[in-house]
């Protein structure tokens, strides 16, 4: 029983981690605490509905459609809302992201109607028995793809020149500008990546659940995940996501479904009290 619960917790947690990673990429690059991340997840799910059900694209093309669509939307959000507001008080920008999420929700409900839609993809949906555990292929696929995306992003961020430019721009806008970096382009790229990672999460969540704007609630689990893992930390976001997934499933099984939220936010509170910089975050270093 425990193994089964851990499996589903880790599988879900991988998706949360992916969404949380997108959140951290945006936060690191532009210092924006993006409350619209949950709606980015919803957007991903609806992009999938659009590509697969409405346009009837073949699956590989649909994936491309989702990624490109999400990246463009991320850039659009940055260009239209975030860049013009750069330098404004952090609260104004947070309010803008909240407003954005509300507008996106309304927009989606106007475009697609309020009724939820089911998403069917050619991804395997059966199950098999492994070491006494019932393994759901969809959960497996979701976890595997999430890990692949996280790994790909990690390699890109760590080892490529563009990744270095992104890290540099995130680290110090001033120094990066002086070094000739188009900080704007880097920030735009960060929003594109953040949106895309959320959208991939949405593709899976939409298939595990049904596609509706209610998926936002699940997408917003990225927030506690990020705070628990460490606000500025990329491995922290992934760890936070996994923890949130496992806690959710354990609490649902051994206490009650409602207690899951309590447990997640209890951990968040403990972290904020004891280790405010998160599990893998770095304590702020004071400059000379």
């Amino acid at each position: 029983m425990l193994g089964q619960v851990l499996f589903s917790g880790l599988a879900l947690g991988s998706i949360y981690g992916l969404v949380a990673l997108g959140f951290v990429v945006i936060l690191k690059a532009t210092d924006v605490f993006n409350f619209a991340q949950g709606m980015f997840v919803v957007c991903g799910a609806y992009l999938a509905v659009t590509a697969l059900s409405l346009l009837g694209l073949p699956f590989p093309l649909a994936i491309l459609f989702i990624i490109l669509g999400a990246a463009l939307m991320g850039m659009g959000v940055h260009a239209a809302l975030i860049r013009p507001l750069s330098g404004r008080p952090i609260l104004s920008i947070i309010m803008v992201t909240i407003a954005l999420s509300i507008v996106m929700r309304a927009g989606i409900e106007i475009l697609y109607g309020p009724a939820g839609r089911t998403l069917s993809t050619p991804l395997p949906s059966g199950g098999f028995l492994f070491a006494g555990l019932r393994i759901s292929q969809l959960h497996m696929t979701a976890a595997a793809v999430s890990w692949l995306c996280m790994l790909a992003f990690g390699l890109f961020f760590r080892f490529t020149s563009v990744g270095l430019l992104m890290r540099a721009a995130a680290d110090s806008h001033e120094a990066a500008t002086i070094a000739g970096v188009k900080v704007d382009a880097m920030n735009r790229l960060a929003w594109a990546i953040g949106f895309t990672l959320a959208a991939i999460g949405g593709l899976f969540l939409g298939q595990l659940q049904i596609v509706s704007t209610e998926l936002e609630t699940i997408g917003l689990l990225a927030l506690p995940a990020v705070v628990i893992g460490g606000m500025q930390s990329i491995p922290g976001a992934i760890l936070g996501g996994l923890l949130v997934g496992v806690i959710e499933q354990l609490a649902s099984t051994y206490i009650s479904p409602k207690s899951a939220d309590v447990m997640i936010y209890a951990l968040l509170l403990v972290i904020l009290l004891v280790r405010p910089w998160g599990l893998l975050g770095q304590k702020a270093i004071n400059r000379v």
Binding site: F7, L12, H139, L208, S252
Partner: peptide, 8 residues
């Protein structure tokens, strides 16, 4: 808003 109902 459940996504996974393994416990249930």
């Amino acid at each position: 808003t459940a996504v996974d109902v393994t416990p249930q």
